[in-house]
Amino acid sequence: MVSPLHTEATATLEAWKPESAAQEALRQSYLGFLAAREDACERSCAAGHLTASTVVLDASGEHVLLTLHPRVGRWLQLGGHCEPEDSSLAEAALREATEESGISGLRLVPEPLHLDVHPVTCSLGVPTRHFDVRFVAMAPEGARPVVSDESEELRWWPVRELPPDSEDLTELIAAALEAKP
Score class of each variant (00 low, 15 high):
2 V>K: 15
3 S>M: 03
3 S>I: 01
6 H>N: 03
6 H>G: 07
10 T>G: 10
11 A>N: 14
13 L>S: 04
13 L>C: 07
14 E>T: 12
16 W>R: 00
19 E>F: 00
23 Q>F: 04
23 Q>V: 00
24 E>T: 14
25 A>R: 13
28 Q>M: 09
29 S>E: 14
30 Y>H: 02
31 L>S: 06
31 L>H: 00
33 F>D: 06
37 R>C: 10
39 D>A: 11
41 C>R: 03
41 C>E: 07
42 E>M: 12
42 E>R: 15
43 R>H: 07
44 S>P: 08
47 A>I: 03
47 A>N: 05
48 G>L: 10
48 G>P: 08
48 G>E: 01
50 L>P: 02
51 T>C: 13
55 V>A: 07
58 D>R: 08
59 A>H: 07
60 S>V: 02
61 G>H: 00
62 E>A: 15
63 H>K: 15
64 V>G: 02
65 L>N: 10
65 L>Y: 10
66 L>N: 01
66 L>C: 06
67 T>Q: 15
72 V>K: 14
73 G>M: 02
73 G>W: 00
73 G>C: 01
74 R>E: 13
76 L>P: 09
76 L>M: 15
77 Q>G: 05
79 G>S: 04
79 G>R: 06
82 C>W: 03
82 C>G: 06
83 E>T: 08
84 P>I: 04
84 P>L: 00
85 E>K: 11
89 L>I: 03
93 A>V: 00
93 A>C: 07
96 E>Y: 01
102 G>R: 07
104 S>F: 00
104 S>Q: 12
105 G>C: 04
106 L>Y: 05
106 L>T: 11
108 L>F: 08
110 P>Y: 09
113 L>C: 10
114 H>Y: 13
117 V>T: 13
118 H>N: 12
118 H>R: 13
118 H>A: 01
118 H>K: 13
120 V>W: 05
123 S>T: 12
124 L>A: 00
125 G>I: 10
126 V>D: 11
126 V>N: 04
128 T>Y: 03
129 R>N: 10
129 R>H: 11
130 H>S: 13
130 H>K: 08
130 H>R: 08
131 F>W: 09
132 D>E: 13
133 V>A: 10
134 R>T: 06
135 F>K: 05
137 A>H: 08
138 M>S: 14
138 M>C: 06
140 P>K: 10
142 G>V: 07
143 A>Q: 09
144 R>K: 12
145 P>K: 01
145 P>I: 05
145 P>F: 01
146 V>Y: 02
146 V>W: 01
147 V>K: 14
147 V>S: 06
147 V>F: 00
147 V>N: 08
152 E>D: 15
152 E>K: 15
152 E>R: 15
153 E>C: 12
153 E>K: 14
154 L>G: 14
156 W>L: 04
158 P>Q: 12
159 V>C: 06
161 E>L: 10
161 E>I: 09
165 D>A: 13
165 D>E: 13
165 D>K: 14
165 D>R: 15
166 S>F: 05
166 S>K: 07
167 E>Q: 14
170 T>V: 15
171 E>H: 09
172 L>C: 12
172 L>H: 01
173 I>G: 05
174 A>M: 10
175 A>H: 02
175 A>Y: 03
177 L>Q: 02
178 E>D: 11
178 E>P: 08
179 A>Q: 08
180 K>Y: 04
181 P>L: 09
